[in-house]
């Protein structure tokens, strides 16, 4: 704020005032529901997950193998050309130990999170997933990991068909 300005505006509501109900808040809850189309690439990706496989798309121009797959290459700006099955193993690009959930509330058991660069795809092609069967202090960047799948009858064609990645 400029030193020329001596008063500044704003009326703070303190946490105590909220608790006391000093102000007349208006509360609304709503829950809009969506059905998102997965599109050509992700529909196939999900179907393959149900079969216990990870698939990618290859662009013949830049020769990158892309995970998650997309039907166009955003760098070459042309359609991608071929489905490629990649491995269910990979390397931890980076990881975190999350003590909070989606709504920022504290979790009893922390979630282990990682970007896993998938073997068989181009370097740096990572996906977001969880880590499991590992002690927190043993996780490191560069660690080799493998997908732990749900049983075939449990799989529904979702990213959670992979329970987590574990060290190998």
């Amino acid at each position: 704020m400029s030193q020329k300005i001596t008063s500044y505006q704003g009326r703070e509501i303190t946490p105590d005032e909220v608790k006391e109900g000093k102000y007349l808040d208006i509360v609304y809850k709503f829950e809009p529901k969506y059905s998102w189309a997965a599109g050509v690439a992700i529909s196939r990706f999900l179907t393959e997950l149900k079969d216990g496989k990870i698939v990618a798309r290859k662009c013949y121009k830049c020769e990158r193998i892309l995970v998650p797959p997309r039907m166009y290459c955003e760098q070459c700006y042309r359609p991608t050309d071929e489905w490629v099955q990649v491995k269910d193993t990979g390397t931890v690009n980076t990881f975190s130990i999350s003590h909070v959930g989606t709504d920022a509330r504290r979790l009893k058991t922390p979630i282990l999170v990682a970007v896993v660069d998938i073997d068989g795809a181009s370097p740096g092609m990572g996906i977001l997933h969880n880590l499991g069967e590992v002690e927190r202090s043993k996780i490191s960047v560069g660690m080799k990991v493998q997908a732990v799948w749900k049983g075939s009858e449990e799989r529904q064609g979702a990213i959670t068909d992979i329970r987590y990645f574990k060290p190998i």
Partner: peptide, 22 residues
């Protein structure tokens, strides 16, 4: 991403901590 990321229980903090670690 509603299909590939949200089902994992994502929070914005994940992306920051993953970036900071890298």
């Amino acid at each position: 991403d509603q299909i590939l990321e949200r089902p994992l229980g994502t929070t914005l903090l994940w992306i920051f901590s993953l970036e900071m670690r890298r």
